[in-house]
């Protein structure tokens, strides 16, 4: 049986466990797939660190905007109502549906922000050799929460909800909604650049110093 010392391979496919010799360099925008099960292992990018940190910080700022203004306004028969993003969760909480309220709040606001924060902290930490927080811990958090971030799903849901009520009353999309659209786009962009191979490669680079 071969063990880690005499093994020439440095990577195994997450879906079929095939040992793979990962190339040191992957060309820009080229996907590297597992030869056996076709699972996408990594995607090449010219300058991933700068893109990710810049876009993540932009997205966090946009999210702050999305949380500060009103999201949608609704008026019927002379009555008007504005809601902000938090109310999508807090109204459920107020009606006693704590479990759903918690899920909605985490999936659409908390986890996406946490993911971007983790990425930015990992990059800043490894780039400037700071060690005020464990990058391994951050990497574990980021890897675990990615499947639970649902910004794009929420966006589609807003549109479905609008279609449902647009005939009943006047519905206006406010600043916060457009900010959330930008946030979701930026988030999806970041998630498409950062595959787990690249993320852990960054963390490993940080260890060397």
């Amino acid at each position: 049986m071969a063990h880690s010392d005499d093994c020439q391979y440095n990577y195994a496919c997450a879906e079929c466990d095939l040992l793979i010799d990962m190339p040191a360099h992957i060309p820009h925008r080229t996907a590297l797939v597992c030869p056996r099960c076709n699972h996408t292992l990594a995607v090449g990018h010219r300058n991933p660190k700068h893109h990710v940190v810049a876009v993540s910080i932009t997205a966090i700022i946009v999210m702050v905007i999305a949380l500060s203004f009103s999201f949608i306004s609704f008026s019927a028969n002379g009555q008007q109502r504005d809601i902000n993003l938090f109310q999508a969760s807090s109204e459920l909480f107020a009606q006693g549906y704590y479990f759903v309220a918690l899920l909605v709040l985490s999936f659409i606001i908390i986890l996406p922000i946490l993911y971007l924060l983790c990425l930015s902290l990992i990059i800043v930490n490894t780039q400037y050799k700071l060690h005020f927080i464990s990058t391994h811990l951050l990497g574990r958090i980021a890897s675990s929460i990615l499947p639970w971030a649902m910004t794009e799903v929420f966006l589609i849901s807003v549109l479905v909800a609008l279609i449902k009520i647009v005939s009943m009353a006047d519905v206006t999309l406010e600043i916060s909604f457009w900010a959330y659209v930008i946030f979701a786009t930026l988030f999806t962009y970041v998630a498409s650049i950062v595959d787990s191979h690249r993320l852990w490669q960054w963390i490993a680079q940080g260890d060397k110093w």
């Binding site: 609704f74 999508a88 109204e91 459920l92 909605v104 909800a161 449902k164 009520i165």
Partner: peptide
């Protein structure tokens, strides 16, 4: 679930 969350908040 999100559609319900939005409708409940808005209406």
């Amino acid at each position: 679930v999100y559609v319900v969350a939005i409708l409940v908040a808005l209406i």
